[in-house]
Amino acid sequence: MTETEIKATIIAGLSQIAPEADFEELSPTENIREELDIDSFDFLNFLIGLNDKLGVDIPESDYEKLISMTDLISYLAKRID
C-alpha cells in the first residue's frame, strides 16, 4: 500500500468523525486531534476503523506517537504487511 493510499484511508476515517473538516487545509505536521476537535472516544473509533481497513492493531502505548498526519502515515506504513 502506498503512502497516498494510506493517507486516503486516514482521511476517510477522519471524515466520518469530522465531516466538516477541510483536509486540504490541514497541515501534515498539525496535531490532528486538537485541530479537528476529536475526543478520546472518537479517536478510539478512528483507530478501530484503521484496524479494520489496514489490519494494524495499534497498542495503547503508541497512541502518544500518533499526533500529526505525518506521524500516522509513517507509523502505519511501517506496520502494513
Binding site: S40, I48, N51, D57, E60
Partner: peptide, 17 residues
Amino acid sequence: LEEQNRQRSIRDRLLPV
C-alpha cells in the same frame, strides 16, 4: 487499566473515563 488494555484487542479497550 494499562495492563487490562494490553491484553485486549483495540475493539475491546476501555477508555480511562
